[in-house]
Design a protein around this nucleic acid. Structure first.
Length: 864
RNA sequence: GGGCCUAUAGCUCAGUUGGUUAGAGCACCUCGUUUACACCGAGGGGGUCGGGGGUUCGAGUCCCUCUGGGCCCA
């Protein structure tokens, strides 16, 4: 089995192994995807999560990516050619923000390009960089800086991943903003459009006023905020109607009052109209099931638009759109034909240009003066919708946006998506519920247009008619062959750049696609969809999508959706969902909480194998508590890795693997039977995506192998019992070591490779996964695993006897009696000489008269 | 308010379809430097399995309920 004489260092150590072996793997293409091998042996393809290149990797990333790498290495050993690419998700808002802070700039698309632009500074921490201090630059300059910074970030990420020991094929790396990715994303979008799955609509849209972009349902989060109920008097024909609202500033946008249809208090008002305070606008009083009788006074004002319920009411009750908040979050200077009195318009004029906050103050002050605010506002805490990356509450504005159908308004598609979710193998299984919950809760199609800069341009232009009006209903589309396109800088076919913005000419779409609209295509990006059909057919659908639980609603769902729309199939067969890292107080690790732990220091201090061990010891889907001050499991991993080095050195020191020998000794045969069972269990666990169990089984065997087997067999391996006994022991030690290295290889990647290299020129990571048959191939007379277990337990009994007698372990025993259950004593008898040797016992009498092992009548000899 | 996960030794976690006396590592105590390893080894103490109720010959495991923690969705 060994193909070179053993070359073993004096003092094996973990330090430096990462750099040494990464260089070697890179040079030798150890993890290169081999297309011919893939055709011959079958592929295991992984749709790796592309980390956000502008973010920072924390210990949670190492945790989950290690899980995937462990699986990849098992599958590779099990005979499949593994397609394991890495992607960088560099497009989108996080990169824009980082560039703004890092270089002290901001994008102003109206500015011309500045060649050889030098940013005001590099490496800003973001805190000192206020928006007002940022230098405005052109879109092209801005994008160039985005490109520059993400490329630098990607190199650092790659270095970290290599240090962790990911067996990624680094020649298969992609970026979500590369020309190939833009082409794929635009192509997929154009096909959605051609099939009627993508469309534009002018509709109420959730809007972040800080970033001035639309956001999708998947990007929302609720946050508790202080608010106050303001009691407002609306004027009915007979009496005032009092409503309570948290958003009095939207009073001029009020289109109706609404109460629950069963609410006794308001039956007499349904069908009548009332007049709004201050603005004196006549609005109807309507009934709708979503009105909550127990909230406030039970009757609410509907405004366009205060929240998502307003949008539902507006749509279902067919109300007019009186939007007054603009995209900058300020009150619009607009026509207000519904405010019919000059006094009302004067009130409105006083609000124009104010932020939501100031407008509220203005309206409340005026209502106090007119006496239409009843009592003082009552403070409350209530959930307010935020963009998950934003820090101001979302507004709802009316804008033209692009959407992709997602099943929210199409029951057939929704049920197909649920069926696909059920076809997918989820690890752990219960994560499937989260997907179903999300699909069930979808309330609108996927809004994919974003008013940002560093993203995939939406590949459409719009004609401008003779009157100078833009015709959004008849977009001009590029041919697929012409992709990628940037409509804001390129003219569509048949037009000239001089016609941009001219009557009879065209205008380019300036919006970009939501980053998820591109990262929902990671299988297509990594698998060279429509670029390399042979590769695509080999790797797609993928075998595995590993990811985090918090993006089931975004990444997993949207990828599944795009695959369904394009190919009517699942994008992958399995998904593995890793838990996340929580701090010792069980709080999720996140930047905003300031409890993020960066991994490089830990990798350097404890070795990558140690950190990998920690990660791999956790099951999929389980959150892991982590205390950077005392990373116990990492320390355990470090000890294990060192132990592997030392144990291997010791095993190899007994001598070379004997030729043409057989395992004749019962204990040795038993050890190998035990190991064969370990192989079987580990294989079963891996096949069930339970790497933690595989590791546990392997590790626990390894410690017993070291503490008991090696100790027991030591003397015989030195030759104390003759050649046959020695050959049997040596053969067993070599076989066990060889098998153990391959079992540990997916987890402890550097130490196993180091050890394997002492006797082999090939990488352990390209060796086949061990089989049960292979482990026992040299056994002459099979023995049950229970022989080794019995010897092991009997040995512990002798050690205890020595401890209790307060003598040293190497104190000889002249004679002793070992009692035990008959069937166990029988097993011990098969390897009694080995037991005598390790117990330093001249004579052991066996007595099949007990239940547990016990020793009696011990006569100790003298030390030396 | 709805859904899902979770609660096992001081700590971090196992416990495979219900089945002997509930396991591991760390920490702790005692001992030991025998030619792999002091980044070590040997031995030991430590748990009414969150509370309550139920099903069963038998429950950490299944059911109900309460409490605490976490995540997702309203």
């Amino acid at each position: 089995m060994s193909d070179q004489p053993a070359q073993i260092p004096e003092k094996p150590a973990l330090e430096g192994l990462e750099a040494k072996w990464n260089d070697r793997w890179q040079q030798q293409g150890t993890f290169r995807f081999d297309r011919e091998a893939a055709k011959a042996r079958g592929v295991y393809s992984i749709d790796t999560p592309p980390p956000t290149a502008s973010g920072s990797l924390h210990i949670g990333h190492v945790f989950s990516y290690t899980h995937t790498d462990v699986i990849a290495r098992y599958q590779r050993a099990a005979g499949r050619e593994v397609f394991y690419p890495m992607g960088w998700d560099d497009n989108g808002l996080p990169t824009e923000r980082r560039v703004q802070n890092y270089y002290g700039v901001r994008c102003d698309p109206t500015l011309p390009y500045t060649p050889d632009f030098v940013p005001p500074f590099e490496g800003g921490d973001g805190k000192s960089s206020k928006a007002a201090d940022q230098v405005p630059i052109s879109r092209r300059n801005f994008i160039e800086l985005c490109e520059r910074l993400t490329e630098e970030d990607e190199q650092q990420f790659e270095h970290l991943w290599r240090t962790v020991g990911l067996s990624v094929d680094w020649s298969q790396t992609y970026r979500t903003i590369s020309d190939e990715s833009i082409t794929a994303s635009q192509r997929a979008f154009l096909r959605n459009l051609a099939r009627g799955e993508a469309y534009q609509a002018d509709a109420p849209t959730l809007w972040d006023v800080t970033f001035r972009t639309a956001v999708a349902q998947a990007e929302l989060e609720d946050r508790e905020r202080d608010g106050a109920y303001h009691a407002l008097a609306f004027h009915g024909p007979d009496a005032d109607v009092v409503i309570e609202t948290t958003r009095p500033e939207l009073l001029p946008a009020c289109v109706a009052l609404v109460a629950h249809p069963d609410d006794e208090r308001y039956q007499h008002l349904f069908g009548t109209t009332v007049r709004t305070p201050l603005f004196d606008v006549e609005v109807p009083v309507l009934a709708h099931r979503l009105a909550q009788p127990d909230k406030g006074s039970g009757i609410a004002m509907i405004c366009t638009f205060g929240d998502v319920t307003d949008v539902i009411w507006w749509r279902e009750l067919h109300l007019p759109n009186r939007t007054i908040i603009g995209q900058d979050g300020r009150v619009l200077d607009r026509e207000t034909d519904w405010i019919s009195t000059p006094a009302g318009r004067t009130e409105y004029d006083a609000l124009v240009g104010k932020t939501v906050f100031s407008a509220q103050k203005g309206v409340v002050d005026r209502l106090r003066e007119t006496g239409e605010l009843l009592g003082d506002p009552k403070p409350i805490k209530h959930p307010v919708k935020f963009f998950e990356k934003g820090d101001r509450p979302l507004e709802i504005v009316s804008t033209r946006q692009w959407y992709i159908t997602n099943g929210a308004q199409n029951d057939e598609l929704r049920s197909t998506l649920k069926a696909r979710g059920a076809e997918l193998s989820w690890h752990p299984d219960f994560m499937h519920v989260r997907y179903d919950n999300w699909v069930d809760g979808l309330n609108g199609d996927w809004l994919v247009s974003r008013q940002r800069y560093f993203g995939v341009p939406i590949p459409v232009w719009y004609p401008i008619d003779a009157n100078g009006e833009t015709d959004f209903d008849h977009p001009i589309l590029p041919a697929e062959a012409d992709l990628p396109v940037d409509p804001s800088s390129q003219a569509p076919a048949g037009f000239d750049e001089s016609q941009r913005g001219q009557a009879g000419g065209f205008v380019g779409e300036v919006d970009v696609l939501d980053t998820w609209a591109t990262s929902s295509l990671t299988p297509q990006l990594a698998g060279a969809w429509e670029r390399d059909n042979e590769l695509w057919d080999l790797v797609a659908p993928f075998d595995l999508r590993p990811q985090a639980q918090d993006i089931i609603r975004t990444w997993l769902f949207s990828t599944l959706l795009r695959s369904e729309l394009e190919d009517h199939r699942l994008p992958w067969a399995h998904t593995t969902i890793s838990g996340f890292i929580v701090d010792p107080d069980r709080k999720k690790m996140s930047k905003s909480k300031g409890n993020v732990v960066t991994p490089l220091g830990l990798l350097e201090q404890y070795s990558s194998d140690a950190v990998r061990y920690w990660a791999a010891a956790y099951k999929l889907g389980t959150d892991a508590a982590f205390d950077p001050q005392n990373p116990k499991q990492i320390k355990v991993g470090r000890r294990l890795a060192i132990k592997i080095l030392n144990a291997a050195k010791f095993v190899l020191s007994f001598g070379e693997r004997p030729e043409q020998a057989q395992v004749t000794d019962a204990l040795d045969a038993s050890l190998l039977a035990t190991l064969a069972d370990v192989v079987a269990q580990a294989t079963r666990a891996f096949d069930a995506y339970d790497h933690a169990r595989a590791l546990e089984v392997i590790e626990s065997f390894f410690w017993t192998f070291c503490d008991d087997y090696i100790e027991v067999v030591k003397e015989r391996a030195y030759g104390a019992a003759g050649k046959a006994g020695r050959d049997s022991a040596l053969l067993t030690l070599h076989t066990a070591l060889d098998v153990l290295l391959r079992l540990f290889a997916p987890f402890i990647v550097f130490a196993t490779e180091e050890v394997y290299s002492w006797t082999h020129s090939e990488s352990v990571h390209r060796q086949p996964w061990p089989t049960e048959a292979e482990v026992t191939a040299d056994v002459a007379h099979p023995a049950e695993a229970s022989v080794f277990a019995a010897i092991s337990d009997a040995l512990i009994t002798f050690r205890r006897a020595k401890t209790e007698a307060k003598v040293k372990m190497r104190t000889p025993i002249v004679s002793a009696v070992l009692h035990g259950a008959p069937e166990r004593i029988e097993r011990v008898e098969l390897a009694l000489d080995d037991l005598r040797s390790v117990a330093k016992a001249e004579r052991i009498e066996l007595a099949a008269d007990g239940t547990e092992f016990a020793v009696s009548d011990v006569v100790f000899g003298d030390l030396d």
